[in-house]
Design a protein around this nucleic acid. Structure first.
Length: 438
RNA sequence: GUGGCUAUGGUGUAACGGUUAACACUGCGGUUUGUGGUACCGUCAAUGAGGGUUCAAUUCCCUCUAGCCACCCCA
């Protein structure tokens, strides 16, 4: 009974997940593509701390947003400072940009990041309290071609993973035209407020934009012909948006003008976008990633006025999508050679042989804790090695070793001192044979 | 924060309210101690917690806890 209680005592914290070895091949594959793209587009990696001053997030993400209002892991440290685990990474990156004087580098400064974020949300499918984000940020340049490039970067990320996604895109306007639109929208909603659902009645005053993407059928009908931001952009914003779309056309990126994409972070302006799975289109639209322009953020956080655009993608959701769409990913690296031993002396000698093989860059596996030959061969088989080297007492006396071809089961006696060059030779010939002619 | 569903070994499942909680996979060990991909045998391992109903609860009821799913929001 006591044992049972102890067993239950420790388990995962709600909303946090172990990434088990069986899943690692997906993660490795995703990481490989991230690194490849970052190099191709000349983005440099930055790692910022997991914790920052709470104020950094309330200033950037916005203290009225759900993320800051009710989803942050905030606490006081022993020095009575208000600290929060990062709910997203852009704020930290911008903080670093300012703090390290990156204005003095050639602009735009292109940075990418990869790491865990934390939001105290109620977990469900595709939503965890600790989740990984990868993101790319281009800071210091306002041209719409960067918007398109950033969107392209994310698009290629999914394409390289063989995932079919659609880009949902919208423009939020800027400080000039957004207030104008808000008034038009409020005007529109004013007369209809009483027919909206309770949530929306609340939203009208606080976040009128949110009324537009309410899922209630009734609300959707009412807002179907509501004025939209894209139709009320100032000239500059309209030009910027049109140019961005033209670049996207040029890149042959499939996008969907979607006025309902508004993003839950306050710092966005002008272009904003999300990537949604093609399979889920039209349904709940669990976004795989998203981003947009945040031209005011650097200044808001104490830097000089600096335009910027960025994108972030959720890795758990991406991996989930890989499984969902049944994408084949490369297996983790295997082994070519297995060293099997029999008897005390042989085992001792194998320890050294193993080291020598490693030193020769041979992908070698072992199971020195096993005594019988059978379990060792079983493991060799599971690891799908090409050859197993067998060293027993007989071989010890003769100064030889057995080389067993695992495919045909043919064994050859080889001089122990020549075994390393011998298997290197064999692996090399096999490699040549197995490489398909291009 | 609001709702719905679920809870049996490491995993996947089974058990009209009634013997020792069954089966498969996995793990570990073995099948004349030196041979894998097939077989056979053995073995470790579970009813989330607490109450109730009952002669009897894995099974029915309540509470808690956890998980999943949906809303909200987002990645």
């Amino acid at each position: 009974m006591v044992a049972n209680k102890d067993k239950k005592a420790f388990q995962l914290i709600k909303g946090m997940k172990d990434i088990m070895p069986a899943d690692q091949k997906y993660w490795q594959h995703v990481r490989n593509i991230i690194n490849k793209l970052a190099h191709q587009f000349n983005y440099q990696r930055i790692d910022t701390p997991i914790a920052e001053a709470t104020k950094l997030f309330s200033r950037s993400v916005g203290d009225q947003t759900d993320i800051v209002e009710k989803e942050m892991y905030s606490f006081k440290d022993r020095g009575d400072n208000n600290i929060s685990l990062r709910p997203e990474m852009t704020a930290g990156v911008v903080r670093a940009y300012i703090e390290h004087g990156m204005v003095n580098l050639p602009q735009p400064v292109k940075l990418f990041y990869l790491g865990p974020c934390f939001r105290y949300d109620k977990p469900q499918s595709g939503r965890q309290r600790q989740f990984w984000q990868v993101g790319w940020e281009a800071i210091g340049e306002g041209s719409p071609i960067l918007d398109a490039q950033i969107i392209n970067l994310g698009y290629k990320f999914f394409k390289d993973l063989s995932l079919n996604v659609v880009v949902q895109i919208n423009s939020l306007g800027c400080q000039e035209c957004r207030p104008v639109y808000y008034e038009v929208l409020l005007d529109f909603l004013k007369g209809k407020k009483n027919s909206l659902c309770d949530d929306c009645k609340r939203r009208v005053n606080k976040k009128p934009l949110r009324v537009l993407d309410c899922k209630e059928e009734n609300c959707q009908e009412i807002t179907a012909d509501a004025p939209q931001q894209v139709d009320h952009l100032c000239d500059d914003c309209r030009d910027h948006f049109v140019a961005t779309l033209e670049y996207l056309d040029e890149l042959e990126i499939v996008y969907n003008l979607n006025p309902k994409i508004v993003r839950g972070l306050d710092y966005y302006n002008r272009t904003c976008f999300e990537y949604t799975s093609q399979d889920n289109e039209g349904t709940k639209l669990n976004a795989l990633g998203g981003g947009g322009r945040y031209d005011g953020l650097v200044e808001e956080l104490g830097g000089r006025p600096t335009p910027a655009v960025g994108l972030a993608i959720g890795l758990e959701r991406t991996v989930r999508e890989l499984r969902h769409q049944d994408v084949k990913v490369p297996d983790v690296e295997g082994y070519d050679i297995f060293v099997a031993q029999l008897g005390k002396e042989a085992r001792k000698k194998c320890l050294n042989l193993y080291e020598n093989l490693l030193a020769n860059d041979v992908r070698v596996a072992e199971s020195f804790t096993k005594d019988g030959l059978k379990p060792q061969l079983e493991l060799a088989d599971k690891l799908a090695v090409k050859y197993t080297l067998i060293l027993g007492q007989k071989e010890m006396i003769d100064g030889t070793i057995l080389v067993r071809d695992m495919e045909g089961g043919i064994q050859e006696v080889v001089d122990f001192n020549k075994v390393i060059p011998e298997i290197k030779k064999r692996l090399k010939t096999r490699l040549v044979e197995e490489t398909p002619v291009q």
